[in-house]
Amino acid sequence: MSTSAEPAVAKAAQTPGPAPGRKPSAASRLAARASGGLAQGILVLIALFWLMPTLGLLISSLRDPTDISSSGWWQVFTEPAQLTAENYSALFDNDVVVGSLWTTVLITVPSTVLVVVIGSLAGYAFAWLDFPGRDWLFLLVVGLLVVPVQVALIPVSKLFNTVGIFETTIGVITFHTAFGLPFAVFLLRNFFAEIPRELLEAARLDGAGELRLFTRVVMPLGGPAIASLGIFQFLWVWNDMLIALIFADGSSPPITVALQQQVRQFGNNIDILAPGAFVSMVIPLAVFFAFQRQFVSGVMAGAVK
């Protein structure tokens, strides 16, 4: 498993050079071009097919509820006048929805920061510090990589009840941090272990203490891996519904839970659901497009999760 931040999408897209040696005949070149054209045509169709569901949601979110219930979203191609931002302005006037977006931010940002910080500390210790039982502990962390969150739902709800953080934002953050840690420690240990030993030893000779070494040398060098981890964790927490459903404060739930509560009356409130879902997607999509490379390398490193 590679742990470095490889730009997989870009890398895989590189076109290989032409075949060396033998010159293809004109006929086979023509055939290749024709089949290439066909393949491209098919790919365009597939891409459109893949975009269609999202497009449907976007257009639905921009239509009047009466239009939505009487005809399909594709009608706007013939009647573009149907498009309206009405649903969105209603959505942003809705205190519950705006509050839930804020709750999502309040959960996601600390969960991400905590996983990065705690994971880096442990990853560094596993990579460069010596202590008894180090290998066993690391193997334990590797083992925890695939533990389903479902296993923890009942026990942790009881535990949080005892401690008094059940159905609080703190509880949700704690849960997400804990379940983000195995992957964080695994990813960062492997990345930190690749830092050249000489670099650390030189810093040590310069009189840097453990903490200084960690903050001034290891963390900056770990940038790419930390970025991957941060993005991955951010999306994971932002998009989570199950943990929030159980552990979040029901009176100010994050956006996923707020929307989930609306789904049961699906059909009557599509004017809230469609724009709400789209708004909940905007941040993850922005993060995705801005940091595709880091995201992809995070996904690749986390393929076992």
């Binding site: 996923t256 789904v263 909940s280």
Partner: peptide, 17 residues
Amino acid sequence: MPMAISMLASGIIFRLV
């Protein structure tokens, strides 16, 4: 791209589909 969005949003998308 769909990997970046929540299963909730995907669920709503496909309820419409």
